[in-house]
């Protein structure tokens, strides 16, 4: 099964799926950061203009510092997110899922130079397109990966019904699908929900169930599965 995740195995032997982010959201995040950076650049030019020649020298120094420190500071102290990344809901972590460290962030951002090669980030783009975890060269060197920030662990509301256990023991996947059907009751058409519930074997329901009441029973199961 093809999926857009990268699997991390923990020491206890369980697998954590990290949802890795690819070229499109990352490039967009980069452009947003660039925009912010350009705004800073203009402000600096403006200030430097007042200071004359000395200002010009100062400008280049500050420009240099901001240019290199901007992503590093944000990534290390803001949970792996520059403002651009934050607006796209992505962040940098180590490939084992731990927060990015100062040294890794430093390496991946300095190596932006390598990704720029030969011109206009061609190496970076191609690397992100062809690497399995959408890493650019800097990511490979630093052992980092860009992932989607996890959704909040919130529960979608489900239609309330008196909790009831299904007549047949369900596997984990089946339990989640029943729960998910209830959670998506506002996104799916009534007809489609009816149709989906009609797919299920009748052993699941209390005997002699009319088709239209199946959905209601499924909602009862969902309430039961969610744990009263």
């Amino acid at each position: 099964m093809l999926d857009n995740t990268s699997k991390v195995e923990t020491p206890e032997g369980i697998e954590l799926p990290l949802e890795v982010a690819g070229l499109v959201p990352r490039t967009m995040a980069y452009f947003i950061d660039l925009l912010i950076f350009l705004a800073l650049y203009y402000i600096l030019i403006l200030i430097a203009g007042f200071l004359g020649n000395f200002g010009e020298g100062l400008f280049y120094i500050i420009f240099f510092i901001i240019y290199w420190l901007y992503p590093i500071i944000f990534e290390v102290f803001r949970n792996g997110q520059t403002p651009g990344k934050k607006s796209l809901g992505i962040k940098v972590v180590h490939h084992d899922g731990t927060p990015v460290s100062l040294s890794s962030s430093f390496v991946r951002n300095i190596l932006l130079i390598a990704d720029f090669l030969p011109f206009f980030y061609t190496a970076g783009f191609l690397s992100m397109l062809f690497n399995k975890d959408f890493k650019r060269l800097g990511d490979m060197a630093a052992g980092t990966v860009v992932i989607y920030t996890e959704k909040e662990n919130k529960e979608d509301p489900i239609p309330t019904a008196k909790p009831r256990a299904p007549a047949v023991a369900l596997t984990l996947d089946e339990q989640r699908s029943v729960l998910s059907l209830a959670e998506r009751h506002q996104q799916l058409s009534e007809a489609r929900q009816q149709e989906l519930s009609s797919l299920l074997p009748e052993q699941l329901f209390s005997s002699k169930t009319e088709n239209h009441s199946r959905l209601k029973q499924l909602h009862a199961f969902a309430n039961w599965l969610r744990g009263h």
Binding site: L16, L172, Q175
Partner: peptide, 15 residues
């Protein structure tokens, strides 16, 4: 694990 269900801890009723 990320996919553990509450009933995997407490147990459940079955028919």
């Amino acid at each position: 694990t990320p996919d553990l269900m509450p009933s995997d801890v407490t147990g459940h009723a079955f028919f």
